[in-house]
Design a protein around this nucleic acid. Structure first.
Lengths: 342, 342
DNA sequence: CAAATTATTCAAAGCGCTTTGGGCGTTAGA
DNA sequence: TCTAACGCCCAAAGCGCTTTGAATAATTTG
């Protein structure tokens, strides 16, 4: 049934060695023989068995990614977008990646199993938490890996790609302050994730620069769906002194926030200013909001592509990738920000 | 470095056979020996090499999914949501799935390669087109597969899971007609995809029932992003006789459509009625639109989960799955539909 | 108590590929 | 001319696991 090396070798009257070499581009095969092999492969539809290749070479040509799955599916959209980037590169290198859906508590086990079973030659970690124990674990696994994001309070030196979240939100907040806002609120991602922690820090710092503070009631941490954006904004509006400017950790949150503002008949950019972080989700462009959103921008898809590159490149001997990258974000001013109301 | 069966057998003074059997639950191993093996496994962190297992058993314990990638990334959000469902089940059966990003023209090659190389034991196909040649190809591959959606004009008998798109949009349109609407428009998915074709048919039929037709200028086919929802609705509003009711193939499209209506100062549910198909995207709930949307509903995530089940089940000898399933959708009436304006 | 089971365990043969270590003709160097 | 150097190709040894066919030890059975 299935064509394999042996059948092919019989068919061609060549040794398996020669065929293997012809296919893998080794020089010690005559041009004529190589042609013959290639032709036969085309005709028979032969494909080397990947499991056998793995076993023989020890290389899996695949990268593992542990996908958080569970009750609360964090950041689905964002994750999907990241995947697109990752996969576009993977295909270019003929790598495939195995998704390992994993329940929250079982992630560590999953990583261990992947590494020990030789299913993948490289791993990828996302949704980094403060003091994330998975980093030390990955380090110990003797499988190359890259982290999307970086931890806090982990003194290790590990490879990562992250964006400068602190700076992004610091700059955004500074803009709001320059516009005269003093009551600023934040609708953030999940509290334990480091990007959320850093974004909050950015806001806090910018406020501190001018002697202001960020009160607890002006911060919401939650999964980034429009629901929570809505709820968060609604709650802010019931405060004694509602904020005149709000930062959102995602355009998805902003979607809900905008809805809440509309319901309250508040005009965005005049009554309340809004800045969101834009992951460049194709389905949700900030310039298409009824009032185009001012954003801090960094493409999640580009990050995925870059990580794939850095993961795969070294496996193929293409070196020279930086070990750690910190991308700057762009602050793009549109119509959702304006001077603070008097 | 890496612990393997041989080392373990030396360590325990047992044969590889016995250990293998102990681990795979065969009866011909004494309880005591099994304990010893299990303990040793725990201590050493041994994991069977998956490539070797595959080679030996011929089973890959993984399912392949060819992910469309390219210039126009179709329905990212929708796809992501589907994935979540698929993966949640996969994990339950200790299967992983390999994503194969594939450019539009290369899908067929990718399928072939996956099948011939024994990387996966089952395949999955989505984004079905009319007269989709990939079906015949899959059939010929001697690898089990399931199609999400079903083709049109392909007389074959193949396993699928689909929702009754025609009926969904037929029923929705009938509701609009009952409310007195006669000028109805449709913002649909990509023209070549069968779900879009069927949805349009549903609309056409319901209109035909009462002697009406669906003019070409009242239909838009496009990728389902909010952009296109916006553009589509805007265009409809410039028609000589603008529609009084519009159907959208996704809540994402509806997002843009709503924006266009807001800009035109038209009141949803009064000036213009809106019905959208709801894939139950957690980030975009129809009940959270400023005017809660009337929808036809069917969970994409549930579909993913079900497909994983049907893909994996038979491989494990759990049979009794229907070969073809056609899910009904629910028509849920909220506030975005109302009587046609006079 | 011998013979027949039954319960455990093992050695060895693959699974399909890559890779090491030759083995021949041919051509180049001395 | 003889030898060193290629060029090209092959046989065979794994990679780490499962599985078949036996062997050995422990129990039963007649």
């Amino acid at each position: 049934m299935a064509m394999n090396l042996k059948s092919l070798s019989v068919l061609l009257g060549l040794s398996q060695t020669t065929i293997s070499r012809a296919l893998n581009g080794y020089p010690e095969v005559s041009a004529q023989t190589r042609r013959r092999v290639l032709d036969a492969v085309r005709e028979t539809g032969y494909r080397p068995n990947r499991a056998a290749q793995r076993l023989a070479t020890g290389k899996a040509k695949s990268i593992g990614l542990v996908m958080p799955v569970g009750l609360v599916t964090e950041s689905d959209v964002h994750f999907g977008e990241f995947l697109e980037g990752l996969s576009s590169k993977a295909v270019a290198y003929d790598f495939h990646f195995v998704m390992n859906p994993s329940l929250p508590g079982e992630e560590e086990t999953t990583f261990r199993r992947l590494a020990a079973s030789g299913t993948v030659d490289a791993l990828f970690l996302a949704s980094v938490r403060a003091d994330d124990g998975r980093l030390a674990m990955l380090q110990s696994l003797s499988v190359p890996f890259i982290v999307h994001g970086r931890s806090i309070g982990v003194p290790m030196d590990y490879p990562y790609l992250d964006i400068d979240n602190t700076k992004a939100f610091y700059t955004a907040t500074r803009l709001l302050i320059q516009l005269g806002h003093t009551r600023i609120a934040l609708i953030n991602g999940p509290e334990h994730l480091t990007y959320a922690i850093r974004r909050k820090r950015g806001v806090v710092r910018a406020l501190a620069d001018v002697g202001l503070i960020l009160p607890d009631e002006a911060v919401q941490h939650s999964v980034m769906t429009d629901d929570y954006g809505f709820q968060g904004m609604q709650r802010f509006l019931t405060l004694d002194e509602p904020p005149t400017a709000v930062l959102c950790s995602s355009t998805v949150l902003a979607l809900g926030a905008v809805r809440a503002l509309n319901e309250a008949k508040l005009k965005i950019g005049r009554d309340v200013s809004l800045i969101a972080h834009d992951d460049v989700l194709p389905m949700l462009k900030p310039e298409h909001f009824s009032v185009p959103l001012t954003t801090t921008r960094s493409s999640l898809r580009a990050a995925g592509a870059r990580i794939a590159e850095r993961l795969i490149g070294p496996l193929l001997g293409l070196c020279d990738y930086p070990r750690q990258e910190l991308w700057e974000t762009e602050l793009i001013v549109r119509d959702s920000t304006g001077p603070a109301p008097l």
